[in-house]
Nucleic acid binder design. Structure first.
Lengths: 211, 211
DNA sequence: TGTAGTCTTTACCAATCGGTCAATTTTTTA
DNA sequence: TAAAAAATTGACCGATTGGTAAAGACTACA
């Protein structure tokens, strides 16, 4: 009796529902990435999605539910590059691949990166739980890094801060994109900046982490 | 005749004006850093400042004026560490000092860092002009770095991305503070994380930038 | 101490916010 | 094709937004 009329979440979804939900999520990603949760309005998302506000609220019960789905999807794929780091591989080559993958994500999914950045900047009020999963994954990979260091295959550095630095330098190109492009200027700016970044970071981490 | 009653900006400021303006700016920094410009409300700032909204608006004409002053002050001091990089000094030691100073700013002025991050994330709509100043300063320092590379005192890497990486790894500890602390966990977290970071980054950049 | 100028507050405004409702239109299905 | 279900809309709600008007309270100084 209670959950029949308003939100078509439990019932089997129709074609239109699937399509419109994707359109809404796509629009919401655009808006939330730019203004954060509090700074964004349902009206903005609705206009971006090309539909009326009540129509949008026919598919999602409220603003937070949209944000929730975006965050969940994001975290699902966001951590894949780290999960893929292979304990059996060559340490510095694994780290190099990790950096490359993270850089590709910054290039291909900048809005997802900004969405995450906005959430963390605001104290991560809606993803406390997910941060615990993240912590467990990092702890696991920190042990891998420590193993490599013990085997003498990697410089003995703080593994946590090693991971932080990789996150920082890669996500920077998505989150601070505006600044990067302003500094590079119209002459130097262009798609090639990601390749330049990859080349530089390769060198920095390969040389910087030699045992 | 026109600017007498509302905003006491042009006249010589009284003691109370100076004091209250500082209280307001301090409160606004707290709020804006957390929610960004659009996500923050005058009421929030007023409550944080311990005064009524109309009282706050007696000192500043509107929300944007407060933000403007904060941004101007911030940028003034934010770039000092880069300005201090001395062309006559030893390259890798100068870079090391630059990283240390930036890390100290992330530790001591995290709200300023977040305020800036919020502004850039949202496409820097209110600081286009200042980004041009930043660009000039970076261009100048890029020439210094290139000189060092030509002298064989520094690895030949892309100087722009070198600077980006330093910004990224240092500001990360202010902007993504929530994530850093969540990952480190209550056991490892503490004031010492900045020293650990400094040690790690020292090593990474010193070794990574050897000619 | 009086008063001019400064400061603060209450009450209020129009616009926008997140969200609901009822009625209508479109699509699916029997 | 007709009825049932799903989708869409305009009108609307109370709360909150940025900001104002005007009157009262406080301060500095003659």
């Amino acid at each position: 009796m209670p959950d029949e009329p308003a939100a078509p979440a439990k019932r089997k979804r129709t074609r239109i529902q699937r399509e419109k939900e994707e359109i809404i999520l796509e629009a919401a990603l655009e808006v939330f990435a730019l203004y954060g949760f509090r700074g964004s309005t349902i009206d903005q998302v609705a206009e971006q999605a090309g539909m009326s506000k009540p129509n949008l609220l026919y598919y999602f019960p409220n603003k937070e539910a949209i944000h929730r789905v975006l965050i969940d999807r994001l975290l699902d794929t966001w951590l894949d590059p780290l999960r893929e780091m292979n304990p059996q591989g060559d340490p510095r080559s694994e780290i190099r691949s990790y950096i490359r993958r993270k850089l590709e994500m910054a290039r291909d999914y900048p809005r997802e990166s900004k969405l995450f950045a906005n959430e963390i900047l605001q104290g991560a009020p809606r993803i406390q739980e997910e941060l615990q999963d993240l912590r467990m994954l990092v702890d696991e990979k920190v042990e891998v890094l420590r193993g490599w260091m013990r085997e003498g295959k990697l410089a003995r550095v703080d593994p946590y801060h090693l991971i932080f630095s990789i996150w920082a330098v890669t996500q920077h190109y998505a989150d601070f994109d505006t600044q990067v492009r302003a500094v590079l200027g119209p002459r130097r700016d262009g798609p090639g900046r990601f390749e330049d970044a990859a080349r530089y970071l390769d060198r920095l981490f390969t040389e910087g982490l030699k045992p």
